[in-house]
Amino acid sequence: MILQAKKITLSPLFKDISFDIEQGQHACILGPSGSGKSTLLKILLGGQSVDSGEILIHDQSPDECGWHQWRGQVAYIPQEAPLGIGTVREALLLPFEFKVHKHNTPNDETMRAQLKALGLQDKHLEQTTNKLSGGEKQRVAIARALLLGKKIFIADEATSALDKDSKAKVIEALMKAEHTIISVSHDDDWIERCTQNIQLGGEA
C-alpha cells in the first residue's frame, strides 16, 4: 500500500475517513464545495492537524519519519504554485534548493525535455515567469513537480487553467502507471481519467 488514511476525524468536517491508495492508482477526492477536499490534502501534507486518525506512506506515519522526510517522498502541485519573479529555469530549480531534493537537481537538458513533454518550448526556460500565460504557468509548476522524480503526487486542481491540448499532455505525463496520485479537481476530463474516487460529504 502506497498511501493510506485510517479513520481520520476532524470535527466538524470529517468523521472516520479511511482510504487506501495502491501503487499506480490515480485518486480524486470528490464532494460538494465545503466538504473539505482541500483540507484533506492539507492533512496529508501536515498543514492541518486532525482530532484523531492516522496517515501512512509505505506503512510509515509522519510521526515516525518526521514531516520533513514525509514531504520529501511526495511531489506537491499547489493550486497556485509560486514561481518567483525570475526566469522559468529559476522557478524550476526552486525546490532543488531544499535539502531533501538537492541531490536530484536537473540539468538544462532534462528541464527542456520536461517542458517539451508538457507542450512548452525550449525558449521558455530563459523567459521570466511573469510573461507566461496562466496555462503556461500551471504547466511550469507541473514540470517542476515531475522533475522532483517522485512516485507520489498530491495535486490541487492541476488542470484548472489548461486548454484541451495541454490538458491531454499533462494528464499523459502525470497519470503514468508508476505514479500514484491523490488529487482534488473540478475538471471532468481529469476526474474521468482517475481510477479511484474518494467521496466526501456523504454522497455515495
Binding site: L45, G46, G47, H68, R71, G72, Y76, P78, E80, A81, P82, G84, L94, P95, E97, F98, K99, V100, H101, I154
Partner: peptide, 20 residues
C-alpha cells in the same frame, strides 16, 4: 502565507521556506 506553506509542503525546512 500560502506561498510560504507551498514551499513547506514541497519539502522545505522552516528556514528554507522563508529564504525567498
Amino acid at each position: 502565507r500560502e506561498e510560504y506553506l507551498s514551499y513547506v509542503f514541497m519539502g522545505a525546512t522552516d528556514f528554507e521556506a522563508a529564504r525567498p
